[in-house]
Amino acid sequence: MMNRTLFIDPGRCIGCQACVAACRECDSHRGRTMIHLDYVDEGNSAAAMPTVCMHCEDPVAPCAQVCPADAIPVGPDGIVHTAAKERCIGCENCVHACPFGVPKLDLTEMLQYKCDMCYDRTSRGLSTMCATVCPTGAIFYGSYEELLADRPHSRASDLFGFSDSLVQTGCAMVVPAGRESVSVPGGYV
């Protein structure tokens, strides 16, 4: 995982949508939210799941690999950026190849949009918009050491299992202590 990154803890999420609203305020994608907030068992439970771009490290950015226009740049710091506006041809490969379901596409603008970990803020040492406003700490921005200092009984995992494949990411999920060496399941496909 990256040195300073996002840690997601769905167990703390109360589904308030503050992250969604804050993300929308960002200058780099005005009025459009990059974070997803899904209700896992709608109608039966309040459980909610915030999803940001996990900035896949290994394999490196599948979204960028399946892009036929080489439009998605991956920075030396591991940040997988939104597709370059002049290159995106609107094919949606990134949207459907991402195992986390992160990128969005606006076909009228022929533009892909995805979370770039608030690059305009984090590249200057600031926290992401979503982590800044999250009232419960379900989205935490910082180093792993800072997370452990804040939550001594928690650990984090940056390894996800999809079918028989493992995906290592730049962001991480908060897991209970003792479970950090096991991959987080990507779903039931």
């Binding site: 896992v40 799941m49 190849a97 991402c98 986390f100 990507g186 779903g187 039931y188």
Partner: peptide, 18 residues
């Protein structure tokens, strides 16, 4: 995973996490 819509991928991951 490409056979699941983006929202279902996220929800399924949430269900598995839970």
């Amino acid at each position: 995973w490409a056979e699941h819509c983006p929202r279902c991928k996220r929800v399924e991951r949430g269900i598995a996490y839970r």
